[in-house]
């Protein structure tokens, strides 16, 4: 293990903080849950880094993230559902036209509320693949299921979404 192969937790925070935040945001549609998850995950990463064995860092990190997320869900189970995020939470990149902004918000709200209707396993697989950008192998490692299961979940998730979205999108 060298200093180059094991990042510091600050490095992890800066490199992955935004991904972790978006992972939770898309799974819950809720900025508070997303913020909680970032804090909890970084705490666990900080504790866990000293025992990290070089291997698939992404798999390791996202397994921690996902477990932190599920533990958080279990703790908060009785909390009432929060409203969907407002449009002004969206960060839309470099100055698109007002029309583009509006249609983009409408579409992303559409996709977001459809995501929230997916069964958890499908939603998780789709978010890890399409929002976080992990490979099937990394998702399998993070979620502790065979790659074939990952492939089937991603497809079934997208297929369900397809049925919920308003076409043409």
């Amino acid at each position: 293990m060298t200093d180059e192969s094991t990042p510091t937790w600050e490095d992890v925070a800066h490199r992955y903080g935004r991904k972790i935040y978006n992972f939770a945001y898309r799974l819950t549609g809720n900025p508070d849950d997303a913020a909680d998850l970032v804090q909890e995950t970084l705490l666990r990463v900080r504790k866990g880094l000293s025992s990290y064995q070089p291997g698939s860092f992404e798999g390791w990190l996202w397994r921690i993230t996902r477990n932190a997320f599920l533990d958080g869900i279990r703790r908060k189970k009785r909390r009432p559902e929060s409203a969907l995020p407002e449009g002004d939470h969206h960060s839309l990149g470099s100055s698109p036209s007002p029309d583009e902004v509006l249609s983009s918000i409408r579409l992303s709200d559409d996709v977001q509320s459809a995501l929230l209707k997916l069964p958890y396993e499908f939603r998780e697989a789709v978010v890890l693949c399409d929002v976080v950008g992990l490979s099937y192998d990394e998702i399998a490692e993070a979620t502790d299921v065979p790659v074939g299961t990952v492939r089937s979940r991603i497809h079934r998730g997208r297929k369900l979404l397809r049925g919920m979205l308003t076409w043409p999108i």
Binding site: G17, R18, I20, Y21, N22, Y25, R26, P31, A34, A35, V38, H89, H90, S91, L92, G93, S104, L107, S108, V111, Q112, L115, V126, D130, V131, R158, L161, L165, I169
Partner: peptide, 11 residues
């Protein structure tokens, strides 16, 4: 559509 979801800035 999933991949074009805007990315939120982490606070």
């Amino acid at each position: 559509a999933l991949r074009l979801l805007p990315e939120f800035e982490v606070p």
